[in-house]
């Protein structure tokens, strides 16, 4: 059982996860940001490794990815930075990114390096379930990594069941079918979708992501699931010059309003 499973087993309050892109706004800021987030009260982290063609992302994360690449971020650089991860950060950490950099790094080598660094899980939105199950599941399992799949309002029930079976961590519920950085619009349809998933009584806990940007949307998400993931709204505040100093106030604004 890794840190992520433990968190979901023990935490009673709504869980807040924060996404940020490694290498943005500065190449070597990764662990400073991670440490500041833990101190400010984030429950777990998703560290994005940048990709040149992030089709699931909206403008904010695209821009941060491009800036990170321009700054020189690569998987090699990231794993080098993560050597000190567990000296500075104790909350669960997942790596999130697109499949091609992982394939070029080598899936086995990627899993080994992630485990070595003390990473708890991986989210690769464009890695298909079929390929994961046939080719990579054993590798992830061997290294104790949770693999997290996304679910949208259009995902069919049988497929959600299959995802639940293949996942060992949590299920990443998208608030709507959208690229990142849109605001959560809680309509009757969204609520019925969240309730539908809740009523399926899946073995994995669920978190809501995409469109969570403030206390109101965080609270709404926590009514239906264990908590929520904030990405674009956080990446936006990293654009300011004193970004580390702004982190505590940001986390407070999400958790407490």
């Amino acid at each position: 059982m890794n840190r992520l499973n433990q968190l979901f087993d023990t935490k009673k309050e709504p869980i807040l996860s924060i996404y940020f892109t490694a290498g943005y706004p500065e190449l070597n800021a990764t662990l400073d940001i991670a440490e500041a987030l833990e101190k400010a009260g984030a429950d777990f982290l998703e560290i994005g490794f940048p990709y040149s063609d992030p089709v699931a992302d909206g403008p904010v994360i695209q821009e941060s990815s491009q800036r990170a690449l321009n700054n020189g971020m690569t998987l090699n650089v990231l794993f080098d930075q993560l050597k000190d991860l567990r000296k500075r950060v104790s909350i669960p950490v997942l790596l999130m990114g697109y499949v091609n950099p992982v394939l070029q790094y080598g899936v086995e080598r990627f899993c080994a390096a992630a485990a070595e660094a003390g990473v708890d899980g991986v989210i690769v939105p464009d890695l298909p379930m079929y390929e994961y199950e046939e080719l990579y599941r054993d590798c992830f399992g061997k290294h104790g990594l949770s693999n997290v799949f996304l679910v949208t309002p259009q995902t069919a029930e049988a497929r959600i069941r299959k995802i639940d079976e293949l996942t060992n961590g949590f299920i990443y519920l998208l608030s709507s079918s959208a690229t990142t950085g849109k605001n959560l619009d809680v309509s009757v349809t969204t609520e019925s979708y969240f309730s539908r998933i809740r009523d399926m009584e899946l073995k994995n806990p669920a978190m809501i992501g995409f469109g969570i940007s403030d206390h109101r949307s965080f609270q709404k998400a926590a009514q239906y699931t264990r908590g929520a993931i904030v990405g674009s709204a956080f990446v936006k505040i990293l654009g300011a010059s004193d970004y580390l100093a702004n982190i505590p106030a940001f986390i407070r604004s999400i958790k407490e309003g």
Binding site: V55, A56, V99, P125, D126, L127, P128, Y130, E131, F149, L150, V151, T152, Q154, T155, A156, R159, L174, S177, A178, T179
Partner: peptide, 11 residues
Amino acid sequence: GGAYIPEMLYP
């Protein structure tokens, strides 16, 4: 080949 797509494109 294959279909390396995020879940949002799957349906």
